[in-house]
Design a protein around this nucleic acid. Structure first.
Lengths: 239, 239
DNA sequence: CGACTTCTTGAAGAAGGTCAACATTTGTGG
DNA sequence: CCACAAATGTTGACCTTCTTCAAGAAGTCG
């Protein structure tokens, strides 16, 4: 579609949506321009700093959100403080749990992030009125389910080395600057968060990272910035 | 609802559905009697022996199923043979992955089971024509997602003892004969399957089971039949 | 009853966790 | 802009948990 035509088609939609990363995402891509206008009227854009909580585990949230930029982590916490990251979400994903008031997990900005927040009541009504939207959310739920199950395999059956390699591979394939064979990216997670994702300790993560570095599988600059010269080789270690 | 009235309301539906456990389940509970008749016309009831595969990982299945009785396990297998069970499903759950042809996991009867099989094409059409059905399947997907994430916490952060206790607790709360405080049930899984579910080895599972037995948390008869005198105590060990 | 599978138990070993010290990066106020 | 403090990451030594390997016990099925 050329630019002029795209602008004509987009003429009726809210200004704020024009350059929004989530414009054609799970939620907004399934709405009519009338619905988009209505949702926008009740939406709020928020900048979140890394570490900021979007939804608290056990709380009743009356809001949903779209991720416009950044990475959001979904966490589960045990009473004694043990913690497990159970999902990572990227723009333009939808954040929230339709049909259930109380959240069984917390959502937290892993990096600085921008989200678009809108009220539960309004959106629940839109879901029930818009089969296309229902279908789109259903689709995201199924994708998250696939991802969760893939991760269960990693948690249950892979070694520490394979776990770390799997995470790096996951992030590399979601981050942008990627050539055919190599990749370079900033980790959106600290070592502690990586440990919580992989069911390991900080120390084990650190040791496995330096092992991968010493074997030439990855280059580490500044501990957050990673270069993978050969993605195929990294994938092989994933098992 | 009394029996006479229920029989009148059910008059228009297929005979096979009358006493079906899945009649008011995720799928059939969301269908009109006309749709139920149509689906029934193209359905096939199958008895599956324990161990029998319903869908193979990596295959393209042109069928979906409803579980009428028994327990179905969802498995992921690595090329080197390592295996992880990523979900258990009970009657009247729906089995299959809408919108995607190729299955990323296998589904296998864990116990003897009866399933009701119906063609993909027909059912995909029904989904798109029936918002209520879409919603119902969406709901099941979200419940499975919650369960998967709960299990990720178990796989990543619980000890072997807590894992075994968690599984026993999960099965006890899904099996029928349960009083206020105690429970008695047959394990639908062998030790090997339990190990594959918990990310452990057979030996560790066995050792933890006898530890729980020696501490009086559970009684083991005939290695498959388990009695839990005090469910609260079992839950406590779950952490 | 005997052959097979499944489950249990023991001894030894390895993977990953814990504790502690140190290095590096980041942030803050002078 | 530097100095210092705090947070984050790395490394080493030791220890615990779980796995591996091996043998034996208990069910299960012909």
């Amino acid at each position: 579609m050329d630019v002029a035509r795209s602008e004509i088609l987009e003429a009726g939609i809210p200004l704020a949506c024009h350059s929004c990363q989530a414009r054609h995402g799970v939620v907004c891509g399934a709405l009519s321009s009338r619905q988009l206008k209505e949702l926008n009227r009740h939406s709020l854009r928020r900048k979140m700093e890394a570490g900021c909580e979007i939804i608290a585990q056990g709380s009743e949230s009356s809001f949903y959100s779209n991720i416009m930029s950044g990475v959001v982590k979904l966490c589960k916490m045990m009473p004694d403080g043990r913690q497990q990251i159970v999902g990572l979400q990227f723009a333009p994903d939808f954040v929230g749990r339709p049909f259930v008031r109380e959240s069984t997990l917390s959502a937290e900005a892993a990096t600085d992030a921008e989200i678009c927040v809108f009220p539960r009541n309004l959106f629940d009504r839109m879901i029930s009125e818009t089969p296309e939207l229902q279908r789109s959310l259903h689709d995201q739920a199924l994708k998250e389910l696939d991802a969760a199950r893939e991760w269960m395999l990693t948690l249950g059956r892979r070694t520490a080395e394979e776990k770390v390699a799997s995470l790096l591979y996951l992030i590399a394939t979601h981050a942008e600057p990627q050539t055919a064979t190599s990749a370079a990216f900033d980790l959106p997670l600290s070592r502690a968060e990586i440990a919580d994702f992989l069911g390991l300790t900080i120390e084990t993560v650190s040791r496995q990272m330096t092992r991968l570095r010493k074997r030439g599988i990855i280059l580490i600059e500044n501990s957050r910035h990673i270069i993978v010269p050969d993605m195929d080789e990294l994938e092989r270690i994933t098992a």
